[in-house]
Design a protein around this nucleic acid. Structure first.
Ligand code: SF4
Ligand code: SF4
Lengths: 146, 146
DNA sequence: ATAATAAAAGACTAATTAGTATTTTATATA
DNA sequence: TATATAAAATACTAATTAGTCTTTTATTAT
């Protein structure tokens, strides 16, 4: 459903949401190593997100990626859309040729509420809120010590 | 999550469950056209399922694919496993390096029950039961007239 | 100024998935 | 027994996704 790319991107952004700010930046190398994501790959993804205005960055020594207060207000859905395209959640499980509520496939009543919940999660909550929840509930993005 | 291949395969098998028996067979061509699946592709998939004992077939004129009474007793999960491999449902949403209930990712409490429900659906119900349910509830596998 | 640092840009290679086409083999029926 | 039919086997091509590498540009600190 989600590509590796968008999974990596979400994890990286949530990491930055938790750890970074305008004066505490992380290089692609640091992020890749911390989250066990191929370094060159996450670099490319983060650059794409910067271009889309979802992540901030600065070049040079002491430079790196971070989330501004503005960035934190976006919802996580935007990341998925930026990386995987607008129709991440629209094409779905059984892939019927012309499917929908009128012509439900065998798993529609399982898949449909799941999609709704997930959408709500990623759409209604800002990155900041999501990140706070992760902190509160003691969830992990990386399993390196911590 | 599911490949095109396994989606196609499940739809084709459920079609055969509904329409075929030992004396009413369908050629790959007929199935492909009915379900709007590339003919050569579904042929290859069905051959794979025959080899795995999940579908029956016979060659020659009046030959084709069908489900025997025995085939109908299998659960749909076996199809997914045959086509996509054993770990279709095991690697999941956020793809954390070493994830699990102890180290839940941000969407674990949404994804996990969904996976459970889906597994139950595909594992506990036989293809026959699933097919009957599809009939009862008026669900569609194809949208060609009907 | 210069050296070191790190993102930006872009050009790659590799792997996987999707889909197509050709040849061979079995079988029903005329 | 010849012919037509359809699966089986196999060898492809194409497209997408994943991942790597190199060069350029901006910035900070020495
Ligand atoms: S019927 Fe529902 S679950 Fe099935 S493919 Fe369509 S949207 Fe997805
Ligand atoms: S924590 Fe749960 S939802 Fe998240 S990747 Fe692991 S199994 Fe999937």
């Amino acid at each position: 459903m989600l590509s590796n790319a968008s999974k990596y991107a979400v994890r990286a952004v949530l990491f930055l949401a938790d750890k970074s700010d305008a004066s505490t930046k992380y290089s692609a190398k640091a992020i890749g190593e911390e989250l066990e994501i191929p370094v060159y790959f996450i670099a490319k993804l983060l650059q794409q997100l910067v271009k889309a205005g979802l992540v901030s960055s600065s070049k040079g020594p002491k430079g790196g990626f971070y989330l501004s207060e503005e960035n934190l207000q976006n919802n996580a859905c935007k990341i998925l859309h930026e990386i995987d395209g607008e129709d991440v959640f629209s094409h779905c499980f059984m892939g019927l040729p012309r499917c929908g509520d009128k012509n439900p496939c065998p798993v529609h009543h399982i898949v449909s509420p799941f999609k709704d919940k997930l959408m709500a999660k990623f759409q209604k909550q800002s990155i900041k809120e999501l990140s706070d929840e992760i902190d509160e509930k003691g969830m992990y993005l990386s399993l390196k010590d911590s």
